[in-house]
Design a protein around this nucleic acid. Structure first.
Lengths: 214, 214
DNA sequence: GTCTATATTTGGATAGAC
DNA sequence: GTCTATCCAAATATAGAC
């Protein structure tokens, strides 16, 4: 996704960096690779972002803000509806991410970047994520808790840990799962969403049907 | 896991590298960090492994061979039994990995290393994994196919892609999920296995119960 | 805001003594 | 097999002209 050359230097860098970070990791992609691919000067990164870490944070923040807003809005819309079920909440979590993945402004790599960032267990990126992502996860955790009242707190955290990791990984792989010929991107996306939702719902609900669900 | 100092240089390097690669990624951990932490000389890496890439491959290979053998043995034992079900096959996949994770020789980091390696989409490490891991995944795919005959091939690959990624990620996070006080490591591990198995089984079987399963 | 040029640090790899 | 010392390439970062 080499970013149209009529974009500003700043935007070109962000766009290319997103792609390279997704492919090679944060440590694995050098500023020289980034600036060469973006066809801007090496010094431009430091001018615009201060440092490599600054660039990384900005690459993440740029789309994460949007994603967070989309997810919280979808969650609120869902939980306001009487009789919403687990699948609706999961849809609110998954759909905004995959919609961003297929937007025409090239957000395809971002979900993979997010998965990479998620895997980084130390450093300031970890704190950054906790600060800017944690509140969204907590909101969803609450929604899940309300829908699965018979599952005790520890047990639920168990399952959420697994499901969050699993979904992150699965969504990161989304761009690479080839769609069948004759299937439109939109259909393909809906297909993916449906699978992930059902898959995660089954995992979260597992063992509780007889007690909680109809 | 700083490797007892009475181990050979070679073993110390492998052990420390495994830990650092798990924490910082392959590109993120330098040979200087590795050799410093292992308290061996910098030049020892090149002597024993030829290059950093050589070290990476050896870190992966060392335990992957064991893991592959364990999984295939468990799979064969399972499929030989009349009336085995999806959960049994999943157990054969998951249990050897988590047993390695809790072995006393410090294989805890390896599953995370494997997840890192799995995420690397290019380079020779990718080929290495395809060569040394692909046949195991294919065996399991066949076993799943036999147990889910009503799911067509494309659909099954869909689900396996998701499940394999999800399990890899979930198992990688295993070391970090804190166990409750008063729960033994063994109990904790059995608990985890049970959850992952049920979770994955639900995802794979989802939508097929009415047709295939009892 | 963008460029050239360069400073500075870090990392991978090797030579050669022991 | 291990060490010291060193080389060389690559990476981040900055200075200063335009």
């Amino acid at each position: 996704m080499p970013a149209p050359s009529n974009f500003s230097t700043r935007e070109r860098i962000l766009s290319v960096a997103e792609d390279l970070f997704a492919r090679h990791g944060f440590a694995g992609a050098s500023l020289r690779q980034v600036t060469a691919a973006a066809r801007v000067n090496l010094a431009a990164v430091n001018y615009h972002f201060g440092s490599k870490d600054g660039l990384i944070e900005e690459v993440v923040r740029r789309r994460l803000d949007d994603l967070n807003r989309g997810r919280l809005a979808a969650l609120e819309a869902t939980t306001r509806r009487e009789g919403h079920v687990l699948e609706d909440v999961l849809d609110a979590f998954i759909r905004p991410a995959l919609e961003q993945s297929t937007a025409d402004d090239g957000g395809a790599a971002f979900v993979r970047v997010l998965a990479r960032a998620w895997a980084e267990s130390d450093g300031q990126l970890r704190r950054f994520l906790a600060d800017n992502y944690g509140h969204v996860l907590r909101e969803f955790a609450l929604a899940f808790q309300r829908l699965l009242p018979t599952v005790d707190r520890d047990e639920l955290h168990w399952r959420l840990d697994i499901v969050a990791g699993a979904l992150t990984y699965a969504m990161a792989g989304f761009g690479m799962i080839q769609r069948r010929e004759g299937t439109s991107p939109t259909t393909h996306r809906e297909h993916t969403i449906e699978h992930l939702v059902r898959f995660a719902a089954a995992g979260l609900r597992e063992g509780t049907q007889s007690r909680a669900e109809g």
